[in-house]
Structure formats: C-alpha cells, structure tokens
Design a protein around this nucleic acid. Structure first.
Lengths: 216, 216
DNA sequence: TGCTGTGAAACCGTTCACAGCT
DNA sequence: AGCTGTGAACGGTTTCACAGCA
C-alpha cells in the first residue's frame, strides 16, 4: 500500500460526498455478509461509476486486490480512518431551538464517530436543562470554557442569522477546528477554522427553481 | 430582453446555488437602498466571480444595462419569477419529530415563496395537534387527500430511514412534484418527481474528513 | 467611459479503455 | 480470467478578455 499523501489542499466537495456514499455502500455490503466486492458492485448501489470510485480511492492509497476486488471490511476500516471516523469527534451546538435540539437528539449525530456533548443557548429558561435524549443545555457565555472542558472539535450553528457570525468568531477563537453553519448567512472560512455553510432554504429554492424551469 | 428559453434539462446544481446567493445579495443591496449595481458589486459580497453571474443570467435572458449595471429591484423581481418564488409554494412535511417540527416552524420555510401547510405523523398522540407556530399535524394515512385539499407541491421527508422510500412513492403517486429528503437514505428520482437528497450526516463527515486530511 | 454579454482559453472532474498484477 | 490502478480522451464549468452598446 502506497503512503497516503500529506496533502494540505482541501478535498473536493464531490469526492468527500462520494466517499460518504461509498462508506454507506460498504456498510450495506458488510451487513449483508459480503466479504469481497468489486468497485462495480460497490458503485452500482448508489449509481456511481466504478472508475470514479477507484480514482477517488487512488488519491489516498491502494486499497484493492487486482483480479479480486476489495475486501469489504478492510476497505471500510481504511475509509473510516481516512475520514477521521475511527474515533469519536465531539460536537457542540449553538442554539437550543427546534433545529438545535433536533440535531442534538439525532441518532446520526450521535453515532459512527460523532457525539453531541452540549447545546448552548442564551434563554435562561432553557439553560441548565437537557434535550430529550439528555444533552445538557449550557449558557452560551460559557462556550469557550466548555470547548476546553468537553474537548469540542466541531461546532454547529443553529441560531438565527444575526447570531451566526459572532458565534463563529468565538468558536474560532476558542480553538474549534470546524464549523457547520445552518444559519441563513454565509460564514466565511476563518483562519484555522473550516466552515461549511448549509442553508436549508437553498435546497427548497433549488427545487422550486427546477419545478419552475422544467414544468414551464 | 431575449425570450427565456423553454428548457427541459435540469438546471445545474451549481447554477441554482449561485442564483440563491445572488438573490440574497440583491436583497441586501435593496435594503441598503442601492438602486443600481454592477455584476462585480453583486458578486463581491459572496465571493463569486462577476463573469459567472453574467453567464448564469445569460442563460435566461438579458437583464442588465450596458455601461450601467443592473437595476437591483428589477433584477430581483426577475430572478424571483425565474426561480418560481413569485408565488407561494405549499409544503407538506412527513415526520413531526424534532426535525420536522423545526422545519415547519422555521421562518425560512414560511417566507419568500414558501408556506408549510401540514405535518404528517403516525403517532396518535401527535395527530390532531399543532406545532408551536400552529402547523396542524395530520395522520400520515391522510397524506393523499391532504395533498389534494391543501395543494401541496413540495414534500419534505423528515422520518427515519425505513419510512422514507414508501412515503416518497406515496407522494409521487399523490401528484407532488418535488421532494426534499432528509432521511439518511438515497431516494431515487421517480417519474414526475424531482428528488433532492440532503443527508445532514454527510456534511459532518465532510468536515471530519477535511479535519483529518488537512490537519494530518 | 463603464459595464454587459459572450466567444475563446484554461481548468477541473468524469468516463473510457487498457496495461499490468493476482 | 478478472479486476485494479491509471494515462488519455472527453465534457462541462469557470475564468479571461474584449467587442459592442448605453
């Protein structure tokens, strides 16, 4: 197996997305009891091209066996390590509103490498309480110390638009490495802070647009 | 102004995303009292390239004035019409859990062209009730008639993975035109149904991956 | 003059097709 | 024989650069 390259450039969005899909495909194969699969078999279930999967993987090493394919369990483990999912990343969510609590209690945000350690809010009635599944709601003014205490590595912003940028800056200053922003503003990537802006409205607008354009 | 083309091909994801950004930029300019702006000024605030904006718009007509730029209000109106946001699209959300209710009550899903008409669930304790802002929760078995009665055009899936596909099929059969799926499974585009799969876990995995790769 | 609209060039990601290993 | 890993071809998108219009 070739040395994984020490790259500093960010991974293309599309590649990252496909690797998530790939991981999901491998989970499916594994729980179906399949030990070995070709890139074609792996790709087929998610409509991907087999060459593309091989290319994606080739960026990080050689994971397959010629003439045979990939050993499912082995590739899955390698992929998880590659994606940093071989250990648990601690998440902190700013905003204990509907969305924040939904994410905090989500099974997807508390499995396979992630764990929500705390919610943060400024509403005194919420502070000190817990989400339905027991995630504590802390005063947002204690963000910095909580990041240190709990070892929060990824911050999630689920507050109204006005609050997003100041909180992002505080998170960056507190040493958080990455940020997932659901507020409808574009938070710029700050030095040392990876930012992913996810505006749910955009997905709706996208659909509306497709409807408007195709069913003219 | 050139005739907008009657296209049948779907609009590229990237274009759609930029148009949403563009619309946001125009809103900002308008509320700042700016009447006229060049493509450069419009693009700058979201880190876009001005030529790209002009190219994007060129696909749908000629909206600018040479030597002057774009009249902000006029372009905004044209863009909203283009994106089908000049009228209110009715939304229906399957799944009245945390996420479903968060979306139903979200200001972003109840403004600028969208309105959530109903939530659907199969939990008898929820059925008949309302979300915090008053969106009624109906029995999911009444989905088909609700689509007709309320005129639901876009469906949103916020149920666990197992439920997603069957509900998507029922929505398609009921005549819904587009679907936004938040369940962690890939719902394929069905005949007559536009599908957008949004797996929130993927965004987290993406960040984890970037962290793992850049801070090797 | 100043900006749009747009061909042409550069870039990037995807797909093809096959050499080479098992 | 079968499948990976990859160079080469392809296609689409982004950026450049400027002709042409207000």
């Amino acid at each position: 197996m070739r040395r994984p390259s020490e790259r500093t450039e960010p991974v293309p969005e599309a590649t990252s997305h496909r690797l998530s899909l790939l991981l999901r495909s491998l989970r499916g194969l594994e729980s179906a009891g399949v030990h070995t699969a070709s890139s074609f078999e792996i790709a087929a279930r998610y409509g991907l091209n087999s060459a593309q999967i091989r290319k994606d993987l080739a960026q990080f090493g050689e994971f397959g066996v010629r003439g045979l394919g990939y050993r499912v369990h082995e590739l899955k483990a390698a992929l998880k390590a590659l994606m940093g999912l071989d250990r648990t990343r601690v998440l902190g969510i700013a905003g204990a509103g509907n969305l924040g609590q939904a994410l905090a209690d989500s099974r997807n945000f508390n499995a396979e490498g992630f764990r929500v350690a705390a919610l943060f809010d400024l509403d005194g009635r919420k502070i000190g309480g817990r989400s339905r599944t027991g995630v504590p709601i802390r005063d947002i003014s204690t963000l910095e110390e909580a990041v240190r205490e709990l070892g929060i590595e990824i911050g999630i912003i689920a507050v109204p638009a006005e609050g997003a940028l100041p909180i992002a800056q505080r998170m960056a200053a507190a040493g958080i490495g990455a940020l997932l922003n659901f507020a409808p503003v574009t938070v710029p990537a700050l030095p040392g802070l990876l930012v992913k802006n996810v505006d749910l409205t955009f997905f709706l607008e996208n659909l509306s647009f497709q409807l408007a354009v195709t069913k003219a």
